[in-house]
Every structure is written in structure tokens, then in C-alpha cells.
Amino acid sequence: MWPFDAVDWLTLSIPFAYLFILVGSLAVFSSLYRKNKAAKAASLAPWFPPHLQRNIYLSLLHMEPEPGHPKVPDSVLKAALLRRATEDIHRIVQIRNAKQALQVLLQRGSVGDDLWQRFQRAEKEIEEELRDVVNEANAFAPNWGQTIFQSASEMAQNTHLRERLAEIQSTTQSEKEWWEKRKETIKSDFMKELDEEKKSPMEVSSKPSGKTGSDDDAVIVESGGPAATAGKGKKKKGKH
């Protein structure tokens, strides 16, 4: 056959070999590079710590019903799912708060690309997590998926609110003690002053007789004095 006889196969193979090696080496390099990059991204520390609530929920879900271990009741699973949704709410809030700041920092070059990659991974994960929770919720009760995150968000806020309140209320005792002490010093100062003014030791002698007793004394003394407007006047007077 004409065309094939005329071809010098050996010489022709050289450019083909050249092309093959070129393309092959590029392909190998590209695949290695990509693999490396993916491995690096995967090995970056995750944004969030392990999702404890999710682990608990799934552990409960996969608990094997054995003779000694009855099946986990649905109510427990629902509670665990609610806890999981609440933790998700915390995470979403964190992601939302961090996003804007992180974008600005990234634009300015203040943070590395690694951090941004970690963040984006966390964002993607949380999206899938939400979808998963909604599906699970819908499996328990029709349309629960639509309200579970409303409930979870209220739960998160309610917990926060009660914590704040408990924190403030826990100062009551120390405040009270401080004020009792302060009242005593004001009172004794006032008594001393009175002592010096009137030089009458009789009235002062009954001073250390307990809190309510001394209170009465102070009022009695005051009603005899020039300024008499309940307890407030007494304190002001002690200040002079």
C-alpha cells in the first residue's frame, strides 16, 4: 500500500514519543499536585472541635438492641436531636460572626489562605449538618424539620439568658455582706461623732448590741437631733 510503504516509522515515532512524554509528564505532575493539595486541605485542623452532640445522637441511634439493653426510646433520640440542633445553632452563629471579619482580614493579607480554607470547609460541613438534622427531624415527626431550628435557637438563647441571670444574682450575697459591713462602719463613725459632740457616753454604751438593736438606737438618737429624715439622713450625717 502506498502511503504506509512510504512512511519511515522509526523517524515518525520520535515526534510522537516526544508528544507522549510531554503530555504524560504534565498529567502526572497535575494529578500529583492536586492530590497533594487535597491532602493538605484535609490535614488542616478542623474549624470546630468534634461535634459531641452529633456523636451522642448517632451512637444512640446505632445502639444494638440486646437482651440486657432495650432499644433506645424515641423520646431520648428526640432529645438528643434537639441538643444536636442547639449545638448547630451555636456553630452557625460563630460562622456568621466570623465570616465578615475573616474576609476583611484575608483581603488585607493579615491571615493566611489556610485559615480561609478551613473556614470554607467548616461552612460546607455545617450546611450538610443542618440538612441532615432536618431530615432526621422529619423522620421522627412530619414537619418537625421546619420548626426544630426555631426551637433550638430559643433553647440556646434561653440557656444563655439563665446563665447571665444566675451570674448576676450570685453577687447578691457578697453585695449584701458588703453593705452590712459598710452600714456598721457608718453607724459607728456616726456614734463616735455624736459621742464627741455631746460628750454623753450613756447613749453610746448600747451600741454593740446586735444589728436591729443598734438600728433602733440610731433612730432614737436621730429623732432627738436636729436633722431627722429617716435612715437616709443618718447616713449622710455620718459622712460629715
Partner: peptide, 22 residues
């Protein structure tokens, strides 16, 4: 967090009477 398909199995126990998890 782990990937969406995996989780860490925790050694949990259900009290049959009180239904409390420990």
C-alpha cells in the same frame, strides 16, 4: 467535625428503668 458519613461511637448505656443515658 468528622466528615458527614462518619461519627465517633461513644460507649453509652441506657438505664432501662429511668431511661437515663450514661
Amino acid at each position: 467535625m468528622e466528615s458527614p458519613d462518619t461519627f465517633t461511637l461513644l460507649p453509652l448505656h441506657l438505664n432501662p428503668q429511668s431511661k437515663a443515658i450514661s
